[in-house]
């Protein structure tokens, strides 16, 4: 169903663009569109899952309990402190090299480059987003938490209802920046054989050695950046109605 929809959309877009597209693009249009769709899927999933994980990480880090804050800090430090490319290769080629015998049931997951790519993107972006949220939280006025506690809210309720909603508003521009970085970073998953936009672009280039191929890829990434920018500023406008004092 979803696949059919994708094919229909791909056909529609390629047919629509054919009068204006050059010979190269006309020939490989379905590949570009397919890669574009894979990149969008991974971005939507990794930004949503990454955000949820980032909230858990920041709660752990701010909880004041070593059993929670210590692992969260280590995870954030490792994923912020190493290149995304290294993380992808360690998980896909490194862990994957244990094979079906070594990994048992987990092999189903680790042999799938798309799933590994998603996992690493989620972990990577959650590390950055948790740092962004933490920055928002520590900059909030102490009185906001005190007022929440003084009406009898537990720490967790206060975080959920009072602190995090405000931290997100404060951190929103920085978060928008992270979304764009995530989009650009996602191109690296083409190195673990995922046919995302970059993966398809490399395939197309390998067939014709025409450097214009990369220009088409750049245009698609710019379109994505435009979509993200519009999304971020629409939400921002919504937030600023509440005008944080």
């Amino acid at each position: 169903m979803y696949q059919d929809l994708k094919f229909a959309a791909s056909d529609g877009v390629c047919a629509g663009l054919s009068p204006v597209s050059g010979a190269l693009f006309k020939k490989f249009c379905p590949r570009f569109i397919d890669g574009f769709a894979v990149t969008i899927e991974l971005l939507v999933l990794s930004s949503i899952l990454g955000f949820l994980l980032a909230v858990s990480l920041v709660l752990g880090r701010m909880s004041g309990r070593a059993v929670l804050s210590w692992p969260a800090n280590v995870l954030v430090y490792c994923f912020r402190g190493t290149p995304l490319l290294v993380q992808l290769w360690i998980v896909y080629f490194g862990i994957g090299s244990f094979g079906a015998d070594g990994l048992g049931a987990l092999w189903v997951f680790f042999k799938n480059p798309w799933a590994v790519g998603l996992l690493v993107l989620v972990l990577n972006t959650s590390a950055y987003v948790s740092e962004i949220l933490r920055g928002g939280l520590v900059n909030l006025d102490k009185g906001q938490m005190e007022a929440a506690q003084s009406v009898g809210m537990s720490w967790l309720t206060a975080m959920r209802r009072i602190m995090l909603p405000q931290a997100i508003r404060i951190a929103w521009p920085a978060y928008g920046n992270e979304l764009v970085l995530l989009m650009k970073g996602s191109a690296l998953i083409s190195t673990i054989t995922v046919l995302d936009l970059m993966g398809q672009t490399r395939t197309v280039f390998a067939r014709n050695f025409d450097l214009n191929t990369y220009l088409y890829a750049a245009v698609f990434y710019l379109i994505l950046a435009g979509i993200i920018t519009v999304f971020v500023s629409v939400v921002q406008r919504n937030f600023s109605k509440s005008r944080l004092s």
Binding site: D141, G143, Q144, E146, A147, A148, Q149, S150, V151, G152, M153, S154, W155, I162, P165, Q166, R169, S242, R243, L244, S245
Partner: peptide
């Protein structure tokens, strides 16, 4: 006992010098 503390705090009303209204709420 954090739960007991929340119960007691709910029975105490605090008004702050800096108001401390939650800025993201009407």
């Amino acid at each position: 006992d954090h739960r007991a503390l929340c119960v007691i705090r709910a029975r105490l009303g605090m008004v702050f010098q800096q108001f401390n209204l939650w800025a993201h709420m009407t």
